[in-house]
Amino acid sequence: MESSAFAAEAVGLVKTFDGKTAVDGASMSVPAGSIYGFLGPNGAGKTTTLRMMLGIIDPDEGTRRLLGHEAPLKAAHDIGYLPEERGLYPAMTAREAIAFMGALRGLPIRKGRERAGELLDGHGLGDWIGKPIRSLSKGMAQTVQLLGTIVHDPKLIILDEPFSGLDAINQGKLEDLIRAQADNGVTVIFSTHVIAHAERLCEKVAIIANGKIAFEGEVDEARNRLRPIVHLRTRQADGPWLDDLPADAKRSGNEFSFELPESGPEPMLKALIDHGAGIDTLSIERPGLHDAFVAIAGAAAAAEMKVGA
């Protein structure tokens, strides 16, 4: 694939603070028009990597390219960025805050006010237009900042832990907003320590732990590193058919669980039937992204992640 097919690329990014390596050789490639998840526990190096990608800080080693520019700041007007640390002027109204954020990216203030009104109306928030930020809940204020991130119609949106602090309803709305942007051809990168968001939204992810990217690729590729799990319940408790099950099968009464054999389910099913196991139920469960994260990054890193939200 040609580099022009990527909205963002990084090769071998390294960043050290006070003698401690925060990011160690991070490489990633984000296909244009995709939703890309950057997964890792707090302190893994996600924010530092994104800031290097954006040109907010420079790497000690490595190269990056945003929207075809080797100097990331040259692409600034085409990028929407929501930092992990939220911040809006409390006295500004919702419309003025959105317009102000657009102005920082080169959008004329009058056009920004017009688009801010359209965005607020379009998201069912028209009543917020004249309300000062200080009067809004945390979730409302974060929604305003998100709208300010997209008001200038960026080609690339980078969201650092965007789901943090949002309740389930607003998390769902944010997921819808991200999908809508991707449907319009916008590339979205978001970092998160909540695996469920990446599993629902992303085709491609990077998994980072201890400053190193342990995996980058499609979600299905990560999940396929593990074999599916068979869950079997039999009507018979014992019999010669037990020898037809894998030696490491886990048992609880008449229920068994084990990895799907490489030969597939058919030979095993035939053997169980021929030997009178009496199959009551059988299901095959494909490993989820959390299972893949544990296998790739280790149990310690996975323990700091959230599975669902």
Rank of each mutant, 00 (worst) to 15 (best):
W128S: 02
L73V: 13
R105T: 05
L272C: 04
G172I: 01
S4R: 01
R95K: 12
I35H: 05
V14L: 05
G124D: 01
I79K: 12
L66S: 08
D291Y: 04
L289R: 01
A214C: 12
A182M: 14
A299S: 14
P83K: 08
I284G: 02
E259A: 15
V230T: 07
A7K: 07
M92E: 10
S137F: 08
D78G: 09
R65S: 09
L120D: 02
G19W: 09
P59C: 00
D78Y: 03
K138C: 09
L13N: 10
R51Q: 03
A5C: 13
G278S: 05
A97I: 06
K204W: 12
L39Y: 04
D24Q: 11
M1W: 03
V151H: 05
L13S: 10
D244I: 08
E118T: 10
L282G: 09
R95A: 15
S263D: 13
H152V: 05
N42R: 07
P246R: 04
F256L: 07
D153K: 12
A71Q: 10
T16A: 13
K204R: 15
P59E: 02
P162H: 04
M268P: 06
A301D: 08
E221R: 03
E161F: 09
L242E: 15
G122F: 03
G308R: 14
H123V: 01
L159A: 02
L39P: 01
T149M: 02
G55N: 00
A277V: 03
E9D: 06
T234E: 01
Y89F: 11
R251A: 10
L156I: 10
W241D: 13
A26G: 05
G45V: 10
K155A: 14
H123Q: 09
M140R: 00
K74T: 13
A302G: 03
I273Q: 10
F17Y: 15
V186E: 08
D183Q: 12
L107S: 07
E255H: 11
D243E: 15
A91L: 08
D238L: 07
A292G: 02
A71N: 12
D127M: 04
D176Q: 14
H193W: 11
A71R: 12
R65A: 04
G102Y: 02
L260V: 13
G117M: 02
I178Y: 11
L156C: 12
H275K: 13
F17K: 00
I133M: 15
G298V: 06
A249L: 01
P90E: 14
V151E: 05
L272V: 06
N224P: 00
L119I: 02
E304D: 12
T63Y: 00
F215S: 03
L50I: 15
Q171I: 07
H69Y: 14
R110L: 13
G165W: 08
R251N: 06
R95T: 14
F215T: 00
L125T: 02
G308Q: 14
S135D: 03
L104Y: 14
E114H: 09
R251T: 06
K138L: 13
V144E: 03
I207D: 14
A10K: 03
A10W: 03
G130L: 07
N210T: 09
M305N: 13
E199K: 11
D160P: 09
A297V: 06
A295Y: 11
G148P: 01
V188Y: 07
L73W: 09
T47W: 06
